[in-house]
C-alpha cells in the first residue's frame, strides 16, 4: 500500500517536472524553427497519446487515425472559413462529430480481431482521405481549402506566432497526458489492461470488453480530432496530403518507438521520430554533399528497423531494461569482488 502511494507520488512528481520543462523550453530555445518543430511534436503527441491508450492498454491497433486527425482539421477549417464562427466552437463540433463517427463505425469494427481490425481501420482512414480529395465543392479537393483559416485566439489575444501557439498546444498536450493518466489508473484502466493481458480471462471476470474498447477508440478519435483542429489553426491551410495512410502509419510507428506501456512513451516517441527526421535533413547533406532526400529515407528506415530489433518494447521500456540489466550485472560484479 505504501508502495502504491509512493508510485502515485512519483507519477505526480514526473508530471510536475515535465510541466516545468515544457514551460521553460521556449525561453531557452528562442528560435522560430525549433519552436515550430516543438509545436508539431505537441500536436502529434496528442494523437499518439490517444493511439497509445488504444494500442498499449486495449491492445488494438489502428491504422486509420490520420483520418480522424483530418476530420478535426477539415471541420475546423471549413466551419471557421465559411461561417466565421469561433474556432473554439468549430473545434468542439469537430471533436463531437469525430467522436460520433468513431463510435458508430466502431460498433461493427470491434467485432473483428487482430489483423482484420487493423485492416478495417486502415480502410476507414483511406475512405476518409478519398472523401477529402474527391468532395471538391466542400474541401477544395487535392489542392486544399483555399479560403483562409483564422488563427486561434483567447479573449482578445490572437495566437498568431509560434511562441504563443507553443504554450497553447503544450497546455492541451499536458491535459491530454493527465486525462490519459487518470484513465489508465482508474477502474477503466485496469479493465483495459486486463483486455490486453487476456480477453478471455477479462471476459470471464465480468469485464464488458466491447464497451471498453469502443470507449477508448472513441476517446482516441476525439484526441486526434482536437489535434487536427490545432494543426489547421496553426498552419492556417489544409490539403488532403497530411491526412493520408503514411501519416496513420507514422503515428503507429511513433507510438511503438516510444513504447506502448507508458503514458509518457508517446511524447518521447513523437519527439524521437520528429527530431530524427529533422536531424537527418541537416546532417545527411553535410556528410554526403550531393545527397538528396533519398538518403534520409534510407537512414530513417534503417534506424527504425534497428530500434525495433534491439528495443522491441520501445525507447522508454527498452532503455529502462538495458539500465536494469546493467545495474544487475554491476551488482553481481560487486558481489564477486
Amino acid at each position: 500500500m505504501q508502495d502504491l502511494t509512493r508510485r502515485k507520488r512519483f507519477r505526480h512528481l514526473f508530471i510536475l517536472l515535465f510541466t516545468i520543462l515544457i514551460f521553460a523550453l521556449p525561453l531557452v530555445l528562442n528560435n522560430n524553427y525549433y519552436l515550430s518543430v516543438l509545436v508539431i511534436i505537441g500536436i502529434h503527441s496528442i494523437v499518439v497519446i490517444g493511439l497509445c491508450l488504444l494500442m498499449g492498454y486495449a491492445g488494438q491497433i489502428s491504422l486509420g487515425h490520420a483520418g480522424f486527425y483530418g476530420l478535426g482539421a477539415y471541420t475546423s477549417g471549413i466551419i471557421t472559413s465559411t461561417y466565421h464562427t469561433s474556432p473554439w466552437v468549430a473545434m468542439l463540433v469537430g471533436a463531437i462529430g469525430t467522436g460520433i463517427v468513431a463510435y458508430t463505425i466502431g460498433i461493427p469494427i470491434f467485432k473483428l480481431k487482430e489483423h482484420y481490425l487493423a485492416l478495417a481501420t486502415l480502410g476507414l482512414g483511406l475512405i476518409i482521405h478519398i472523401i477529402f480529395v474527391e468532395e471538391v465543392a466542400l474541401t477544395g479537393g487535392p489542392s486544399g481549402l483555399t479560403r483562409p483559416i483564422p488563427y486561434l485566439s483567447i479573449g482578445g489575444l490572437e495566437l498568431s506566432n509560434d511562441f504563443k501557439y507553443y504554450y497553447l498546444v503544450w497546455l492541451i498536450t499536458l491535459l491530454a497526458v493527465i486525462i490519459a493518466n487518470n484513465v489508465v489508473h482508474s477502474r477503466v484502466g485496469r479493465a483495459l489492461r486486463s483486455i490486453h493481458g487476456s480477453e478471455f480471462a477479462a471476459r470471464s471476470l465480468g469485464v464488458d470488453i466491447g464497451k471498453f474498447k469502443l470507449r477508448v477508440f472513441t476517446l482516441s478519435a476525439i484526441y486526434a480530432s482536437i489535434a487536427g483542429s490545432l494543426y489547421a489553426h496553426y498552419i492556417t491551410f489544409i490539403s488532403p496530403s497530411p491526412f493520408g495512410l503514411m501519416t496513420s502509419i507514422q503515428f503507429v510507428v511513433m507510438a511503438v518507438v516510444g513504447g506502448l506501456s507508458s503514458i509518457w512513451g508517446p511524447v518521447f516517441g513523437v519527439a524521437g521520430i520528429t527530431v530524427l527526421t529533422e536531424a537527418l535533413k541537416t546532417v545527411v547533406p553535410q556528410l554526403i554533399p550531393e545527397a538528396g532526400g533519398e538518403y534520409e529515407i534510407v537512414v530513417y528506415g534503417t534506424i527504425l528497423v534497428v530500434i525495433m530489433i534491439f528495443l522491441p518494447e520501445g525507447l522508454i521500456s527498452g532503455l529502462a531494461n538495458l539500465y536494469e540489466g546493467w545495474r544487475h550485472r554491476k551488482g553481481q560484479a560487486d558481489e564477486n569482488s
Binding site: I61, V257, E294, I297, V298, L304, M308, I309, P312, E313
Partner: peptide
C-alpha cells in the same frame, strides 16, 4: 528480431519497406 512482438514486427516490415523504397529512389 526474435524478441519482437507482432506489432514490433509489423513496424520492422514498415521500416524495411521504407528502406527499399528509399534505395529504389536512389
Amino acid at each position: 528480431a526474435k524478441r519482437a512482438s507482432p506489432v514490433s514486427l509489423v513496424i520492422i516490415t514498415i521500416g524495411i519497406s521504407t528502406v527499399l523504397r528509399g534505395m529504389a529512389l536512389l
